[in-house]
């Protein structure tokens, strides 16, 4: 009855159960964190604004981004993926989201940052609807845990009206 195999099996089952329970508890403890992130984004300059040969509008801009995301970090946080998206609606598309910049933050100390960047991904519309368009610049973050449930949230930082003419 108490053979080697029986004991090994019991030990393995028990340790796996405990491990799963600990992982579940670590993930559950994330729910008690109520973060208060803050962010400020400003469009410093529209570098170029043109209509591409295929008819789509493209815009290039310089952005100043500063944020304090330190309160997002808990003991179960592996990294925070943060990105800035331009969000707008056009007659063709009810919802457009274009990521302009993103970054990976692995340390809580690095979660308070301020940076000046050109858009990292091309800001191209589907069609020529960007002239004079009002866009929302939204800072999103996606929290990747060491184990368990992932969290995501966002903060609409600022509205901006694109130029009325190509340049």
């Amino acid at each position: 009855m108490h053979s080697f195999g029986y004991r090994a099996n019991a030990l393995l089952t028990f340790s796996l159960t405990i491990l799963a329970l600990m992982a579940a508890m670590a993930s559950f403890s994330d729910n008690f964190n109520s973060p208060s992130p803050a962010a400020h984004v400003q469009v410093l300059n529209v570098n170029r604004f043109q209509n591409r040969p295929n008819g789509d509008d493209e815009i290039g801009m310089t952005l100043s981004i500063s944020a304090d995301l330190q309160s997002l970090f808990t003991w179960n946080t592996k990294q925070v993926f943060v990105f800035l998206a331009a969000e707008y609606g056009t007659p063709k598309n009810a919802m457009n989201q274009v990521s302009l910049w993103d970054g990976i933050i692995q340390l809580k100390e690095d979660a308070k940052f301020s940076t000046k960047v050109k858009n990292k991904y091309r800001f191209i519309d589907q069609g020529s609807n960007l002239r004079g368009r009002d866009i929302n610049l939204t800072l999103h973050w996606h929290i990747m845990p060491k184990t368990g449930k992932m969290f995501a949230d966002k903060l609409v930082v600022t509205g901006f009206q694109l130029p009325h003419s190509y340049r």
Binding site: K92, N93, A94, S99
Partner: peptide, 16 residues
């Protein structure tokens, strides 16, 4: 992979 751009049509909800 992660989604970086979304273009969603009016009405039909079709999405790129």
């Amino acid at each position: 992979h992660r989604v970086i751009k979304v273009h969603e049509r009016e009405g039909s909800g079709e999405v790129d």
